[in-house]
Design a protein around this nucleic acid. Structure first.
Lengths: 369, 369
DNA sequence: AACCGAAGTGTATGCGCATACACTCGCCGG
DNA sequence: CCGGCGAGTGTATGCGCATACACTTCGGTT
């Protein structure tokens, strides 16, 4: 790691000008093959790697796209210890149900995966930021200075920050409907999905008084889902206002608590339609433990399509969001925006998939494999 | 998104020099409070966000750390369609066991999570690259030009590329023992973990002829694990050479195939110790399906500690790797390296945790709730 | 034989910032 | 009353590259 090589070093070593060196990387075809080989030999000899900072400055674009998410994982508060410990082995007799604390945030992982995939496909590099307790404003500004465009989860950052940052680079909001702003948006068909699920429960399963279990108030996702639910009811002549609604917060823990409340209040309702999977799983946890059979006595449905819902007993009927596609779409929109800054705001709504499984269907095939 | 504001614009607007503007961001305390407020007002007025490219160039450091992983997910080959479709809802009757194809790569997600966490803690931004089919060499070089240091999975990139890139920035290798190189390394206690598990199976469970199911040949992780296994045998006076070994590839599918082979060959062995969880889960899939009771007839163990192993039936006895810590440690080592480039190579080995669960323990509590 | 264009290469400049250094100003001690 | 000093600010420079433009060859035209 002596002195880092620069274009000048390579140019001198190869006996050409720096323009030629630069061209070898940027537009190889503009350089005669023999010269190119010659330069590349020098590149190898000197261990030259072009500086993205310099390139970004000169070219006025970085080739990087940003992805910012708030940290809704209750971030396992990792201790700050140094990594000075030795390779030891702790033995733990692991009792069942020792908590579902790990990996709550599949959502972000999936979106990240999709973003990463699409960004590279489009020739960009991805920079990620997950808002820790630390000041999200600084974080977003920091990222904003490094990228050509930034995608972030809607409502994860104050509007004025968005406005500020958007004077420099394009912004794409993930999972939030347009709301008077001119940003680009990428969402899933929340309303349509919950509506379809509602129709299924009402029409196919014959439940005329399903109970809705919401997520945190004022999240747009939750609001839309509830809207779809109400629409399905209305279409069947049922007044949504006549049915009780429980308010969760998208956590499994809260789902359990809600199930407790419900059971305490009397016989469980015929169907519980939850605004997300975690809540539904928490409810199933408690219902099952208290001897309420799902779905025979109570049907439970979720929304999201997380992995746990496929591994639970019974497996969870849900609406699967295309989370990977959400990330992909965000990057795709970003690219499109960068190619034409003047085009009108883009708003994408991705399709969802209704997964009918045993938490709602009577014929529960055994989960043996 | 008119003309992006620069230091010059802010300086002019605030009636100060660009040095003062720069200082407001870099060393706020060097600027009189009143001046600072004044400048910040201009910053807000102009929507100024400092350019990381320019800063990186001038300061000779980017403040970004890189993380590169190859793509061992068989990348679900996402189609290349544009996102022009409408919000529709597909209904799918989801039959059980419709595959475990999703999310195979928890390993990377966890490492990423830890890396991201630690990087921000240390004041760095994280840039991720997942090697798609596309040329990993280009990808690594690309990232290398953008960051102050790069962590990558060992053996994911040819040695000469590493050597080349390392002339520019420090490299940290994840999950691979040092091997004659001078790079920094971060690993887990593979050998110790498998050794402890081996001792448990031999001593506590009284199995004197456990069968090892390996991973892909020549991965260092697998090699170390097998080494720990052999050592445990040797300590009990058992000759490892006398026992059969099956060769897997860390995939669940292959685990299933191996189970098939084993059953075809005769009565199943008393214990199967697998080099990773996926393989073990695949084996359990088939054993269970064919009526072999786990663990009563055959004990099965894994290695990794992935989530599925906690949700399977029976739950999987395994050695849990500290995957999040692996990422954290990589970033931590990187920071340490950057603070003192001359210090001797660092090699960290993180402790593991032996999780004793029902795939090896007789007393299998029911998996209810 | 003078001319022309294409292909290949070099020269010069600026991208936006950090920072070394110079400078100013007010205050203190001698 | 002068010298010195520290706090605060400005000036000048260079970081490493992309790229517009100028220049040189050289083969083919007329």
């Amino acid at each position: 790691m002596q002195k880092t090589a620069t274009v000048y070093d390579v140019a001198a070593h190869a006996g050409v000008s720096i323009a030629t060196v630069s061209r070898v990387f940027r537009r190889p075809d503009d350089v005669r093959a023999s010269t190119r080989e010659h330069v590349l030999a020098s590149v190898r000899a000197l261990g030259y790697v072009p500086s993205a900072s310099a390139r970004g400055l000169a070219a006025r674009r970085t080739g990087v796209l940003g992805l910012y998410f708030p940290d809704f994982d209750a971030v396992e508060d990792v201790d700050d210890t140094d990594f000075a410990y030795s390779p030891r082995v702790d033995v733990v007799v692991d009792i069942p149900d020792s908590g579902d604390v790990r990996r709550p945030n599949l959502y972000f992982d999936e979106v990240l995966r999709g973003s990463e995939l699409q960004a590279w496909r489009d020739g960009f590099t991805l920079m990620v930021g997950v808002g820790r307790g630390s000041n999200p404003i600084e974080m977003v500004s920091d990222i904003a200075g490094r990228v050509d465009g930034l995608a972030l989860l809607a409502h994860s950052v104050p509007d004025d920050v968005l406005e500020h940052v958007s004077r420099r680079i394009p912004i794409v909001l993930i999972a939030g409907e347009r709301r008077g702003d001119d940003f680009d948006h990428v969402t899933v068909a929340n309303a349509e999905g919950m509506h379809a699920l509602g129709r299924h429960v009402i029409d196919d399963l014959g439940v005329r008084d399903p109970v809705f279990v919401s997520g945190p108030r004022d999240t747009p996702d939750d609001r839309e889902r509830y809207g779809g639910f109400c629409q399905a009811l209305a279409e069947s002549g049922i007044d949504p206002g006549s049915l009780p609604v429980f308010h969760g917060d998208f956590s499994r823990e809260r789902g359990r608590a809600i199930a407790g409340e419900i059971l305490a209040a009397g016989p469980p309702p015929r169907a519980l339609m939850c605004s997300n999977d975690q809540t539904a799983l928490g409810i199933i946890d408690v219902l099952t433990a208290r001897g309420v059979r799902v779905p025979e006595e109570t049907i439970v449905t979720g929304f999201d399509g997380i992995e746990e819902g496929r591994l639970s007993t019974p497996r969870l009927t849900t609406v699967q969001q295309p989370m990977v596609d959400l990330g992909r779409a965000a990057m795709w929109v970003m690219r499109s925006r960068l190619e034409d800054l003047a085009q009108p705001p883009i708003a994408l709504r991705l399709p969802v998939k209704l997964l009918l499984r045993e938490s709602s269907e009577g014929s529960s095939p055994s989960r043996s494999q």
